[in-house]
Amino acid sequence: MELQRRKKRNLLKLPLLVFFAVVVIGFAVIFGLFHIRTVDVTGNQFYSAEEIQKMVMSDSLAENTIYLTWKYSDPAAAEELPFLSAVEISMIEPWHVQIRVYEKTIAGYLMFSGSRVYFDTDGNVVEISGEEREGVPPVSGISIGQPVVGEALPVADGGFLDDIVANARALHQSGLTPDEIHYDDQQELILYFGESRVLLGDTSYMEEKLEELSAIYPQMEGMSGTLHMENYTPDITSVRFVPGERGEEEQELIINLNRTSQEAETNEAGEPVQNEDGTPQTDTSETSETTAEEGGSGYVEDSSRFSTDANGNEIYTDEAGNTTTNLDQPYLGDDGQIITDGYGYIDPYTGAYILN
């Protein structure tokens, strides 16, 4: 009888032993085979792969492939990371995952108590640290209170914050990355690029201003001065560029907007060559070729090199220093110089030799 009872107890223990064995093996598989050893990070721009991995896999179970995949299947999980709008986890192999991140667009950073306060194009603080993020411009001229990650920039003037957000979005859309973003005492926007600054004024036509700036910016590279776009409207066809280091203004140039076939000529310093009326000279080779084909003279009339001698006579001087006092028809050759032998020049229309 006692022997039978022992056999029954042993038979009851067997399923429990099998169950526990299965559980142990399962845990061994889950926490052994599915232990993450290889991580690929994609989609990151401002943050390094190491930073992304550390923040996404921050809790104690995050090194398990199954758990990590399950956790970020819920879109709300990314809300714990204020600099990301979404996170996607893909299992490549049981021990190999890919982390695909969608970073929020960082508009710039403000300095506060020795730390950089990074904010996105919605005006929300995404990070407060001493870390300098490549490609993120500093923003000055904005006073804020105590910043909190995940909350809006603490700007006292709500209307000003709206302007900051609108400008940040327009600037991101333009593709321009200034060296510095500044707001003056009137809360108007100024962008700095190298030794040049661009006065953009208030938010009026900001998208259009930045679109035009993006188109003409290559002409400004290497130049020093101020581009005036604060009074821009879609109806204007040119804007003023005043040379001079960061606003030490000298003689101004005119930069045409919405150009088509003609490009501004530049001097050896890379600055636009201007006519007497302030407009930039344009390449006339295409015009000259057309004139020649149509039976014209092939020479281009020029009126930007006039002077007056001691007797009050007007004199025309070309780039080579050749002069003429016959100003009825001053013509230049294809090399930009008066057709002359030192004593006179040839009238390209009549072929007559005219003495100086």
Rank of each mutant, 00 (worst) to 15 (best):
K13W: 15
L17G: 13
I25T: 05
G26H: 08
G26E: 07
F27A: 08
A28V: 09
F31N: 11
F46W: 04
A62T: 12
A62Y: 06
Y67N: 04
K71Q: 03
D74F: 02
E79V: 03
L81Y: 02
P94N: 03
V97S: 03
R100F: 12
K104I: 06
A107G: 13
G108S: 15
R116I: 13
F119H: 08
D120V: 00
N124C: 01
V126A: 02
I128T: 10
E132K: 06
V139C: 11
I142C: 07
G145N: 09
V155R: 06
V155C: 08
D157K: 01
D157C: 05
L161M: 07
Q173L: 14
S174Q: 06
G175I: 06
P178M: 08
D184I: 13
D185V: 12
E188M: 12
Y192I: 12
G194Q: 05
G201A: 14
M206S: 04
M206W: 00
E207C: 03
E208T: 04
E208L: 05
K209D: 03
E212T: 12
D235P: 10
V239K: 05
R246C: 09
E250V: 05
E252L: 01
E252P: 01
N258Y: 13
E268N: 10
A269C: 09
G270F: 01
P272Q: 03
V273H: 04
D277I: 14
D283R: 02
T284D: 14
T291C: 09
T291G: 11
G295F: 12
S297G: 07
D302P: 06
S304M: 13
R305L: 08
D309E: 03
E314Y: 04
D318I: 14
A320G: 10
Y331R: 14
G336H: 14
T340Q: 03
G342Y: 05
Y343L: 15
Y349G: 05
A352R: 11
N356Q: 13
